[in-house]
């Protein structure tokens, strides 16, 4: 490949790029948002310019280039099947083999005369630096975790500060993940609404607005409130955090819809069993999206929490259904 054939990309995102990012955050076309793997030029790079290695998820690619304004370098984009660096490294697609392969395909050693590849630190989950150096002839340097630190890292003679080496999980980082928690649960809610509608055709005591509110309250507390308030909710296990927020939400909604009054005590009891358990279950799903949970921790949590969640949920569901189907009068 000659230098003239290398596509040049801008460090400025277009409106289309921003709209694309919004869409994938909502889960639309998320599994098919990618750029062609290979070599790209940013600015006016030459044989001495640094080579940054990254993934072919377009969201990753865009975040990287928007942090490279007024900067000249090469981007070596690996084929990670449209998955971000950290997750792809965990699955092995951002790995030693693909790195070696891509350095060869792009004839990188004909394009730059130095022998240094800068990998994102989180790529180290899939790349063995010593092995990759031996096979490519390039030395592997782990750069900072975040693209925003790359320019400072290079200016500081390829040294990262301690802060650049640690992952965070701040409010904004959690916020952008919540649509992917909410959307799947809301989709799964359609059949549940169908069952409620059908039950209402023959139930002595039909489901009313307050019941639907309690359901969506539990969904919202598990998929939105728990992720957002994560570090402020007491306890460590996600199941516990989700149960606690679910209990608060359910209690508040029941009070508003006159639960625990004469004739609805049993049903309210069922709801207090069921809805926090639902919130807890949904919140556990978020363990897979954080930057600080370990598989052993998740396994331990599931082993302890799932039997309790299912017992509470099943008992609660039976009480709720029975009091609707056989119960008397409206509340």
């Amino acid at each position: 490949m000659s230098k003239n054939n290398i596509p040049k990309v801008s460090a400025t995102l277009s409106l289309k790029d921003i709209a694309g990012a919004l869409k994938v955050r909502l889960g639309i076309g998320r599994m098919n948002y990618m750029v062609e793997p290979g070599l790209y030029a940013i600015g006016n790079p030459d044989g001495s310019s640094p080579v940054l290695v990254s993934a072919n998820y377009k969201l990753t690619f865009d975040i990287l280039r928007k942090n490279l304004t007024d900067f000249s370098c090469w981007l070596l984009i690996l084929d990670t099947k449209g998955v971000n660096v950290w997750c792809a490294a965990g699955k092995g697609t951002f790995g030693t083999d693909e790195l070696v392969n891509r350095v060869e395909i792009t004839c990188l050693s004909d394009i730059v005369y130095h022998k240094r590849l800068i990998l994102p630190q989180l790529g180290s989950v899939g790349v063995n630096a010593h092995e990759a150096a031996r096979l490519t002839g390039f030395s592997i340097t782990y750069g900072p975790i975040r693209a925003k630190d790359i320019k400072a890292y290079i200016a500081n003679s390829y040294t990262a500060t301690k802060e650049m080496r640690l992952v965070e999980f701040n409010f904004m980082e959690r916020l952008v993940l919540t649509p992917m928690e909410l959307v799947p649960v809301l989709k799964a809610s359609f059949p549940i609404m169908g069952i409620i509608f059908l039950t209402n055709q023959f139930a002595k005591r039909p489901f009313v607005k307050g019941d639907i509110a309690a359901y969506f309250g539990a969904v919202f507390s598990g998929a939105f409130i728990t992720p957002l308030l994560l570090p402020y909710i007491p306890g460590r296990a996600f199941a516990w955090k989700g149960w606690l927020t679910g209990l608060f939400t359910t209690f508040a909604i029941l009070c508003k819809s006159k639960g625990f009054t004469k004739g609805s005590r049993l049903m309210s009891f069922g709801q207090i069993l069921f809805f926090p358990a639902l919130s807890s279950f949904i919140a556990m799903n978020f363990t897979g999206s954080t930057t600080y949970t370990s598989p052993s921790g998740v396994k331990e949590e599931m082993k302890r929490a799932l039997p309790i969640i299912f017992s509470f949920g099943a008992l609660g569901a039976i009480i709720i259904l029975c009091s609707h189907i056989f119960g008397k009068g409206r509340r």
Binding site: P231, R236, S294, G297
Partner: peptide, 13 residues
Amino acid sequence: MTKHKYLEDVTTL
């Protein structure tokens, strides 16, 4: 920023 803490004594490291 707040340091997140998960379950203790579970890692296989």
